[in-house]
């Protein structure tokens, strides 16, 4: 049973990951490269002759085409990872506890996943366009990112628990409203975290555009994952009801 769930999650991940990889290849790669060049052309204006030989890519250990290729591949793996872990393992374990029925569960899980992996960490470290100087050292930022991921997961779980407790005795709207509270509480660690001042030479329109693309890309990826997962789930349900599985047959043949 677990393997069925994981297979379904990985399947959703592969499809969503391929589409995200396409977004990487067609939009993110060229845009990031452009912003990179733009951001670094400002401070490298003095030594202008050695910058152009590397294809405009600033002091990278690898060539631009490697970066593009590996980035696309990473995008696909990103989808597979999220699909396998969140829509495979986590969905299998938490399915009985996720509020709602049918595809609502998939979409709620996607919302929780987005909050955990991107939303909560972005409260402390908003997505940055390339060529931005950040004041906090990388190690600190990694810790902060990881910490906020944990906080996001905790807030999502709490929201689910609170909803499940309340909706038995109260109206659904009341339960949902109270369940949102722990998510709002994420503002507290976000405010307490050290400030990460940024300095950029990018024109603000371009910076806003890149940030918008990043948010759109991740939110879209989760939406896509949920949608595909819900469809796969529906199809599996139909197959199950058409021909009873071995466990159901077993249950029918052994009287309790």
């Amino acid at each position: 049973m677990l393997t069925d769930y994981v297979k379904q999650g990985v399947m959703a991940g592969i499809i969503a990951g391929l589409i995200f990889g396409l977004l990487m290849a067609l939009v993110a790669n060229p845009l990031v490269a452009f912003a990179d060049e733009f951001g670094h052309s400002g401070d490298h204006a003095v030594d202008d002759h050695h910058d152009t030989t590397a294809g405009g890519h600033h002091d990278s250990a690898v060539s631009m085409s490697v970066t593009n290729g590996v980035s696309i591949l990473s995008g696909v793996f990103w989808g597979v990872l999220l699909g396998g872990v969140v829509f495979g393992v986590v969905y299998y374990l938490l399915e009985p506890a996720i509020p709602g029925a049918g595809s609502t569960k998939s979409y709620l899980l996607a919302a929780a996943g987005f909050l955990t992996v991107s939303g909560a960490p972005w409260l402390v470290l908003p997505p940055q366009p390339p060529g931005v100087e950040q004041t906090l050292p990388t190690a600190t930022r990694l810790l902060l990112y990881g910490g906020m991921m944990a906080a996001g997961a905790l807030a999502s779980l709490l929201a689910g628990v609170i909803y499940n407790r309340l909706h038995v005795a109260h109206r659904r709207v009341t339960a949902a409203a109270v369940a949102v509270l722990p998510i709002c509480l994420l503002a507290i660690p976000a405010m307490l975290a050290p400030r990460n001042a940024v300095e950029t030479t990018l024109p603000s329109e371009l910076a806003v555009g890149v940030t918008g693309l990043i948010i759109f890309g991740q939110a879209g990826l989760w939406l896509l994952l949920a949608n595909i997962h819900a469809q796969l789930q529906r199809r599996a349900d139909m197959r199950d009801s058409a021909q009873p599985t071995a466990t159901q047959l077993d249950g029918a043949s052994t009287p309790e």
């Binding site: 977004l23 990487m24 993110a28 790669n29 990031v32 490269a33 990278s60 250990a61 690898v62 490697v66 970066t67 593009n68 290729g69 590996v70 980035s71 696309i72 990473s74 995008g75 793996f77 990103w78 990872l81 991107s118 972005w122 470290l125 908003p126 997505p127 940055q128 366009p129 390339p130 990388t138 930022r141 990694l142 990112y145 990881g146 890149v210 693309l213 990043i214 948010i215 890309g217 991740q218």
Partner: peptide, 26 residues
């Protein structure tokens, strides 16, 4: 690997992806 690796070769080849995913970069 996708979220946290800082080793230059790997890190730089995933540079665009990390930006697209909004993950901590250099």
């Amino acid at each position: 690997t996708l979220l946290f690796v800082q080793q230059p070769m790997l890190h730089d080849s995933m540079h665009n992806f990390r930006h697209a995913a909004g993950v901590t970069c250099h």
